[in-house]
Amino acid sequence: MSSSSSSMNRYWIPHLDIHKKVITQELQYYLGPEATVRSFTRDGEDGFLITTPGPCLTDEQIDDICVKSKEMWERQAAARASGGATKILKRPLHQPVVMSKTGSSDSTRRRREGRRGNDSRSRRDERRRN
């Protein structure tokens, strides 16, 4: 990294009309590879904290991000409206694998053995008393 974190400038902009995914994708295009963005709340208002070695985004760049954000929200809404909710999830690697089940033979066997142990202790205690 050519510049240290102490020489980086930090700017806050409100989240109004800005999609997080869009600003994350576009920021380095506008401000260079060292620029970063993260969600940040300032005085109770949500927004984005931008860290960059140079100046912050221009009004034109922010307008462009807002336009792209609006397009992103419209695409997401269209996908939901077209039945995106009925889409089949493709998660073959996340197929659940049963490790144990309540009431399986192992747990039943352990419960029976536990009872036998208690029964034999009770008999021993009873013999000692007599």
Rank of each mutant, 00 (worst) to 15 (best):
L27T: 00
M1Y: 11
T58C: 00
Q76W: 09
D119S: 10
Q61G: 07
T108E: 15
L31F: 03
S82V: 06
D106Y: 14
G103H: 02
L27H: 01
S4D: 14
D46A: 10
S82W: 06
R124E: 03
E45P: 01
V98E: 07
D119N: 13
G117V: 03
I50S: 04
V98Q: 07
V37R: 03
L93V: 11
I65R: 02
H94L: 10
E71P: 00
L16T: 15
D64C: 10
P14W: 04
W73M: 08
P55M: 09
R127Q: 05
G84L: 06
V22A: 00
S3M: 15
R10T: 13
G47W: 00
S5L: 13
V37P: 06
T52G: 06
N130D: 11
R112L: 08
S104M: 02
E113Y: 01
S69Y: 06
I88R: 13
R123K: 12
Y30K: 04
R123F: 08
K90P: 00
P14G: 07
T36W: 01
G32V: 02
P33V: 01
G32K: 02
V98K: 09
G83E: 09
K90R: 00
K90M: 01
G47Q: 01
F40C: 13
L16N: 15
K101F: 10
T36G: 02
L93P: 01
T36P: 03
A77R: 09
I88T: 14
K101D: 07
S5Y: 09
V37H: 05
S7A: 09
I13V: 04
R129I: 11
S82K: 11
T102M: 08
R110P: 01
T24W: 05
V98M: 08
